[in-house]
């Protein structure tokens, strides 16, 4: 007993230090995370539930909800397909240029959201590289829904692949090889062996991708052209309300996005917990 007491003292801080550090950490998090979280809902409900509900029922808000769902509904599945494909090629095979591919996939993380939106204006805008072509084919991309989708695809591009690559690398290729030796076709191997092994990581990637897709502001703000009721997603709608000094309404819509963020955090925690439990099961 005595020796364990000695180690405990030698490898732990005095209680006073512990308490002080904990209070400091929680104070910082409280100030920077909890206060804003509470503030969103407090401001949203400042004028009561009726005002809150009417801000959400307004036609502009509803069309923003629809557009946000549409954008995410297109961007997330596409990124899912891309992410799985990229992770499969990168994690399970060796080929020249593999590291370069990983770096390039991560590029959008390093690009300011403003620039992420701007490149599509440079590409499809009236003076853009493909602008004349788009006009000739009567395609409205910039300041229209396709532009929003493209900008969202750009900013969320790395999310799924990034979650999956390390996971699939860690899992190696033995199980898939075993499935092949046992006669499984490519699809059978993927569906019955690969997919069950990556499902939590995949879900996690999709959740993060979705949160970003629905919440993206800078990039879509640049490409949207702010045509009310037509190219406004929820975050853009929040901005407009705020700039029009309709603070309560802005926060009401913002609270919906905040709830989405909280659900994302919850889902992430659950997925991590499940994933961790399965990993610990294996050992």
């Amino acid at each position: 007993m005595r020796s364990s007491g000695v180690t405990a003292r030698a490898t732990r801080e005095p209680v006073a230090v512990k308490v002080a550090l904990t209070v400091l950490a929680l104070g910082f998090l409280g100030l920077f995370l909890v206060v804003p979280l509470v503030a969103v809902f407090a401001q949203a409900l400042e004028k009561g539930w009726a005002a809150y509900a009417s801000a959400l029922r307004e036609p502009m808000a509803l069309s923003a909800v629809k557009l946000t769902l549409l954008t995410a509904g297109i961007a997330v599945p596409l990124n899912l397909v891309f992410g799985v494909a990229a992770a499969w090629a990168i994690a399970k095979f060796e080929f020249p240029g593999r590291n370069a591919l990983v770096t390039l996939i991560d590029l959008p993380f390093g690009v300011s959201p403003v620039i992420s939106g701007m490149v599509f204006i440079l590409l499809f805008g009236r003076q853009g590289l493909l602008g004349p072509w788009a006009q000739a084919h009567d395609l409205k991309i910039v300041f229209a829904v396709p532009g929003l989708v493209l900008a969202t695809l750009f900013v969320t591009f790395p999310f799924v692949a990034r979650e999956l690559i390390p996971l699939m690398q860690a899992e190696g290729t033995e199980e898939e090889e075993a499935a092949r030796v046992l006669g499984a076709s490519g699809w059978q191997m993927f569906r019955r062996v690969t997919l069950p092994n990556i499902k939590w990581g995949l879900l996690y990637g999709v959740i993060l991708c979705n949160a970003r897709a629905m919440g993206e502001f800078g990039a879509v703000s640049v490409v949207s052209g702010h045509i009310r009721g037509k190219t406004n997603t929820l975050p853009l709608h929040v901005e407009i309300l705020y700039n029009e000094y309709q603070f309560q309404a802005a926060f009401a819509v913002a609270s919906v996005l905040t709830l989405l963020a909280l659900v994302t955090l919850l889902a992430k925690t659950v997925v991590e917990w499940r994933g961790r439990r399965e990993v610990s099961d294996v050992d």
Partner: peptide, 13 residues
């Protein structure tokens, strides 16, 4: 939370 919260919401808050 800051990862998950849309930046516009963070901004106005």
């Amino acid at each position: 939370f800051p990862f998950a919260l849309p930046t516009a919401v963070a901004g106005i808050t």
